[in-house]
Design a protein around this nucleic acid. Structure first.
Lengths: 205, 205
DNA sequence: GTCTATACGCAGATAGAC
DNA sequence: GTCTATCTGCGTATAGAC
């Protein structure tokens, strides 16, 4: 899948993605990115002008992918539970590739909530129908149990996102039980477990 | 509850806790801590020598509190489900006070896993019995459903910890539905929701 | 103990040769 | 486009007066 000859720009983007994902905006070092890309520090600035601009590029790419993957509430004919299942699968796949994206977003929102809001709008272009709306419609129709949609949304997000963020913690604390995170945990197992909880939460008795 | 006259050292610790919790180790600025504490930057170094040392103090205090609060698997006579309920309540209370602790721990582990491991051992002093062990014992006794204990542990942790980490995200995305995180979410509501999921996950059929 | 002034180093950014 | 050398600013840390 990976091209044999990458341009410097591509090498930088790939390296930057890795370093930013690992250390965050503040923790990342331009020197590290340059080293991994196998080019000079000055070249980073030649292509992207500043650290912030480079970060933005990575970030925007990731957000595009993300909103693409969770845009699953469009078909109003299929059962909402199936749509949620799809949402679970897609977002877990996404988080497996971008484990740090959540932390990025949090930092971005804290730095400048208005700017972030604008970015999101530009990416979504109004095409996304969101989960809470879809759930409330389904409740009105009597399709699912009458639940607290906000709480459901928060819990679902927690289940899908946190295991990737907190991998180091889990690795560490599972070791005390002679368990191995990489062996005992997999995105596929997580999908099954989460879908089971979703099913319990939405199904009418 | 707060003392009327705090020593400079106490003022620094309180300010540092806030700033570190908000910005993390890298993002935090000694100047900010000094400003909030209402003292001079040089005093920080007078009392704590370096930024890292100051951070360690805050961190260790928090970890002590944490392990104290989740040390609930000691009484082997009470049902494990009740112990888990207690665990849920205590850790949610803790995360409400230290929303950033999880990110701290992740960074610490990544920086130096061995050092972190030593710190933890010193704090726990072996007195903690952990959740996974307690669960597996309960399964053997036939007290609860036969579950994947690792997955259960990860999911429970996700549900309790993530809502506090991701507060900015939830605030932002709930606004699209004219919902207000601070109104719709509360630690108490979370406790109830999580305990319900625990009950479902552990109860035999 | 607390301050002001200053040293020092690191990391981001630029100049300029090739 | 790519490099080496250099500048600059910021943030931690120290010296030294009071």
């Amino acid at each position: 899948m990976k091209k044999l000859t990458q341009t410097s720009e591509e090498k930088i983007l790939e390296a930057a993605k890795g370093v930013f994902m690992k250390y965050g905006l503040n923790g990342a070092r331009m020197q590290d990115i340059a080293d991994i890309a196998g080019i000079n520090k000055a070249l980073l600035h030649y292509y992207f002008r500043s650290k912030d601009k480079l970060f933005d590029k990575i970030f925007e790419n990731a957000l595009h992918k993300y909103f693409e993957s969770i845009n699953v509430f469009t078909d109003s004919t299929s059962p909402v539970k199936d749509q949620i299942f799809k949402y679970v699968e897609n977002s877990i796949d996404f988080y497996a590739e971008y484990p740090q994206i959540t932390m990025f977003i949090i930092k971005e929102i804290e730095n400048s909530p208005d700017l972030f809001h604008k970015k999101i709008l530009a990416i979504k272009k109004g095409k996304n129908i969101n989960m809470v709306d879809a759930l409330e419609k389904a409740i009105t129709k009597g399709e699912i149990k009458k639940i607290d949609t906000t709480m459901f949304f928060i819990n679902l997000q927690s289940l899908c996102s946190y295991p990737f963020i907190a991998k180091p913690i889990f690795k560490h604390s599972l070791k005390a039980n002679n368990k191995d995170y990489d062996k005992d945990f997999s995105p596929e197992k997580l999908k099954i477990a989460v879908k089971q909880l979703v099913d319990f939460s939405l199904s009418k008795k």
